[in-house]
Amino acid sequence: MWTAFCDLLADMPLSYIGCILAGIPAGYLLRRRPLAVRTANGTASGIIYALLFLLGVSLGADEDLLSRISELGLRGISIGIACAAGSLVVVRIFSATLLRSSGGENRQ
């Protein structure tokens, strides 16, 4: 039954975003309940660890993917560095304007 439910969800193009949008009001209403906040955060990190473990499993079980693992890593690192460097350059350009919005440089 769960599989059918998931298939149904997956057929809707915006289902990912729909799940998030449904969570926002739920979180807003429960924001002053420490137990709810703790449970939600705990659930999230538990699921993340499990999902990334499973992502590893599907990679490890696939001989073809496994043989390309260093290639995948290199691509990942290149994209990560390029995006971080790009963000650094653009923020440098806007930093004067940004400082004005926070009341000028008076930290020193």
Binding site: C6, I20, G23, I24, A26, Y28, A40, T43, I47, L54
Partner: peptide, 25 residues
């Protein structure tokens, strides 16, 4: 591997919902 793939779907939806809750908090 099939077990992993099935579990991936459902828990992704739960994760997304909980991520939304985090934004609402």
């Amino acid at each position: 591997r099939a077990l992993g793939d099935g579990a991936l779907d459902l828990s992704l939806y739960i994760l997304l919902f909980v991520a939304g809750m985090g934004m609402g908090f």
